[in-house]
Structure formats: C-alpha cells, structure tokens
Amino acid sequence: NQASVVANQLIPINTALTLAMMRSEVVTPVGIPAEDIPRLVSMQVNRAVPLGTTLMPDMVKGYA
C-alpha cells in the first residue's frame, strides 16, 4: 500500500510546509505520495489543513 502525506498538526492557510508538519501514513483515499515530502518543504497550503488530514495535490500551491 502506498503511504500518503498526512498533516501532523493544524496547518493554517498560506503556511509554508516544514518536515515537522507532515508524516507518512497509509490512508484511503490516497493523497500526495510520502516520497514527495522533501519536495513539499517550503510549499504553501492554500487552505487550513486540520491535524490528521491527508494532503491532496490541490491543497498545496504549485504542487499539482
């Protein structure tokens, strides 16, 4: 099963992502692949992401 990127904390809108904000977890539906975590660092979210939410490509500016 593919691990996805999950929010490790509440991430406010327009926040630049850091490693501490993300974790890898096997979830359904599948979100951004966990191997993309290094690429996500310093990218901004375009909405508030609650703790435990799977990051989807449309939630991260410049990812999709």
Rank of each mutant, 00 (worst) to 15 (best):
A48Y: 13
S4E: 01
I32H: 00
V26E: 15
M22R: 00
Y63P: 04
V6G: 01
P29V: 07
V5P: 02
S24C: 03
L17Q: 01
A20V: 14
A34P: 06
E25N: 14
T54I: 12
M56S: 13
V26R: 03
N46H: 11
K61N: 07
N1M: 15
M21W: 03
D36Q: 09
A7P: 02
D36Y: 10
V60H: 00
I11Q: 00
I13R: 07
I37D: 00
N14L: 11
G52C: 05
L55K: 00
N1P: 14
N8Y: 12
V41M: 14
L19C: 11
S4D: 01
V60I: 11
E25G: 06
V45K: 00
A20F: 15
M56W: 06
T15Q: 15
V30F: 15
A64P: 07
Q9K: 09
R23I: 04
I37E: 03
K61S: 11
G62M: 11
Y63C: 03
Q44K: 11
T28S: 14
T28I: 04
R47G: 04
E35L: 09
A7D: 00
M56N: 11
K61Y: 15
M21D: 03
Q44R: 13
T54R: 04
A7V: 07
S42A: 11
D58K: 05
R47C: 05
R39H: 11
M43R: 08
T18D: 04
L17A: 00
A16C: 10
Q44V: 07
M22G: 00
V60E: 00
N46R: 14
D36G: 05
T53S: 09
V45C: 06
A16V: 15
S4C: 04
P33D: 08
T15M: 10
I13K: 09
P29A: 05
V41G: 03
L51G: 14
G62W: 12
V45Y: 00
A20K: 09
N8E: 12
A7K: 00
V60Q: 00
S42F: 13
D36H: 08
S42H: 10
A34W: 10
M56E: 07
Y63V: 04
M22H: 00
P57T: 12
A3E: 14
A48N: 10
L19I: 08
P57I: 07
L19V: 07
L55V: 08
K61T: 07
N46Q: 14
T15S: 08
T28A: 10
T18N: 05
P38S: 10
P12R: 10
E25S: 08
P33W: 08
R47W: 07
A3K: 06
P57W: 12
P57Y: 14
A34Q: 07
T28R: 02
V27L: 06
L17I: 11
V41A: 08
L51N: 10
L51I: 10
I11K: 01
V26K: 03
T15E: 09
M21K: 04
P50S: 13
L10A: 08
I32N: 00
T18E: 04
A64Q: 12
V45Q: 00
V49T: 10
S42R: 06
A20T: 12
I13H: 14
T28H: 06
A48Q: 13
L19H: 09
L40G: 00
T54P: 06
P57A: 12
P33M: 08
R47H: 08
A20S: 15
V6K: 04
Q44L: 14
A16T: 05
V45H: 00
V45A: 05
I13T: 14
A34R: 03
P12I: 09
M59V: 07
V45W: 00
R23H: 04
T18K: 07
V26P: 10
S24K: 08
T54Y: 02
V6W: 02
S24T: 14
N8T: 10
P38R: 05
A64V: 15
T53K: 05
I11G: 00
G31V: 02
L19N: 04
N8Q: 08
V26T: 07
R39E: 04
D36V: 05
G62Y: 14
V49H: 02
N1D: 15
M59I: 07
L51K: 06
N8H: 08
A64K: 10
V45I: 09
V27F: 02
L40W: 02
P38A: 09
M21F: 12
K61D: 04
G31A: 03
L51R: 07
S4T: 13
E35V: 05
T53R: 09
I32K: 00
A16G: 11
P50Q: 14
G31W: 02
V5G: 02
T18L: 06
